[in-house]
Each structure stands twice: as structure tokens, then as C-alpha cells.
Lab assay of single mutants.
Amino acid sequence: QIFVKTLTGKTITLEVEPSDTIENVKAKIQDKEGIPPDQQRLIFAGKQLEDGRTLSDYNIQKESTLHLVL
């Protein structure tokens, strides 16, 4: 699982696999929060994550925290 922290300070927990794409993660966030993926920007280690890449591409491991910017 990974954590996604929103600007409001809320933390969302997501069940993911390293092979999941960023697009996939955004879809999971939409399921939980109702935020359309095209409004979501995910930041990890100061980098904006691209939809077509996977979590493992960015070396995002379990218990990692991503930041969600709208």
C-alpha cells in the first residue's frame, strides 16, 4: 500500500502493486475521493509523475507517500 497526502492534509491509503501505472493510481484516487484523474497531479520526491509510467519506474515502494496537487 502507499499513502497519498492531499493539500488539505488528508491522507488516503491505496492498495497498489509496483506494476501499477500512475494512471491506474489516479483512477483509484477517483474511486475513493471522486476527483477526476485529469485534475490530479501526483508528486513524489519533488517530481511530477507521468501517467504512462509505473510506480516501480519511480522507485515508489510500499509505505511511500505521494503528494496530490489539484
Rank of each mutant, 00 (worst) to 15 (best):
Thr8Ala: 12
Gly34Asp: 05
Asp51Met: 05
Ile60Gly: 01
Pro37Met: 15
Thr65Asp: 04
Leu55Phe: 03
Ser19Trp: 11
Glu23Gln: 13
Glu63Pro: 03
Asp51Phe: 04
Leu49Asp: 00
Leu55Cys: 05
Lys28Gln: 11
Glu50His: 09
Asp31Pro: 02
Gln1Gly: 05
Ile12Met: 06
Glu15Tyr: 13
Gln40Phe: 15
Gln48Arg: 08
Arg53Gln: 09
Glu17Arg: 05
Phe44Ser: 04
Gln40Pro: 02
Lys5Asp: 05
Lys28Phe: 05
Phe3Asn: 06
Thr21Met: 07
Glu23Asp: 08
Leu70Ala: 10
Lys28Val: 04
Thr54Ser: 09
Arg53Phe: 12
Lys5Ile: 15
Ile12Glu: 01
Leu49Ala: 02
Ile35Leu: 06
Thr6Arg: 06
Phe44Gln: 03
Gly46Leu: 03
Ser19Leu: 09
Thr21Leu: 11
Phe3Leu: 07
Phe3Ile: 07
Asn59Lys: 09
Leu42Ala: 00
Gly9Leu: 03
Asp20Leu: 05
Gly46Asn: 07
Thr21Ile: 05
Gly46Gln: 05
His67Ser: 09
Val4His: 01
Val16Ile: 10
Val69Asn: 06
Phe3Lys: 07
Arg53Thr: 06
Asp38Ser: 13
Thr13Leu: 09
Leu68Pro: 00
Leu7Arg: 09
Leu7Thr: 13
Thr13Ala: 09
His67Lys: 07
Leu7Pro: 14
Val25Asp: 00
Ile35Arg: 02
Glu15Leu: 12
Gln39Tyr: 09
Gln39Val: 09
Phe44Met: 05
Lys28His: 05
Gln61His: 11
Leu14Cys: 04
Val69Lys: 08
Glu17Ala: 09
Asn24Pro: 00
Thr8Tyr: 12
Glu50Tyr: 06
Thr21Phe: 08
Ile29Asn: 00
Ile43Glu: 10
Thr65Phe: 07
Glu33Val: 14
Gly52Ser: 13
Lys47Leu: 13
Thr21Gly: 03
Arg53Ile: 06
Leu55Ala: 02
Gln61Val: 13
Glu63Asn: 13
Ile2Asp: 01
Ser19Phe: 11
Gln1Lys: 13
Lys32Arg: 09
Asp51His: 06
Pro18Ala: 10
Ser19Met: 10
Thr11His: 06
Asn59Ala: 08
Val16Phe: 15
Gly52Cys: 12
Ile35Met: 05
Arg53Met: 15
Lys26Leu: 04
Ser56Pro: 03
Gln1Trp: 14
Asp57Arg: 02
Thr65Glu: 08
Ile29Leu: 07
Val25Leu: 11
Val4Thr: 01
Ile22Lys: 00
Thr8Lys: 10
Val16Ala: 08
Val16Trp: 13
Glu63Asp: 15
His67Ala: 06
Gly52Met: 09
Leu42Glu: 00
Phe44Asp: 02
Gln1Leu: 15
Ala27Thr: 11
Gln61Pro: 13
Gln48Phe: 14
Ile12Gln: 02
Glu50Arg: 07
Gly34Pro: 03
Gln1Cys: 14
Leu66Asn: 01
Asp31Arg: 12
Glu50Ser: 07
Ile12Cys: 03
Gln48Met: 13
Gln1Pro: 10
Leu68Val: 05
Ile29Met: 03
Glu23Ser: 14
Gly46Thr: 04
Ser56Tyr: 10
Glu33Ala: 10
Ile29Cys: 02
Arg53Trp: 11
Leu42Thr: 00
Asp31Leu: 14
Val4Ala: 03
Gln39Pro: 02
Ile60Glu: 01
Gly34Met: 05
Val69Gly: 06
Ile35Cys: 06
Lys62Tyr: 15
Gly9Lys: 04
Lys47Tyr: 10
Val69Gln: 10
Glu17Leu: 11
Val69Trp: 09
Ser19Val: 06
Gln39Phe: 09
Leu66Ser: 01
Asp31Glu: 14
Ile43Met: 13
Leu66Asp: 01
Tyr58Asn: 03
Thr8Asp: 14
Ile29Phe: 03
Gln30His: 14
Leu7Ala: 14
Val69Arg: 08
Lys28Met: 15
Glu33Asp: 05
Thr11Trp: 08
Phe44Val: 04
Val25Asn: 00
Pro36Gly: 05
Ile43Asp: 05
Ala27Arg: 14
Ala45Gln: 15
Lys47Glu: 12
Lys26His: 02
Gln48Ile: 14
Tyr58Gln: 04
Gln40Tyr: 14
Gln30Leu: 10
Ile60Trp: 03
Pro36Asp: 07
Glu33Ser: 11
Leu49Phe: 02
Pro36Leu: 07
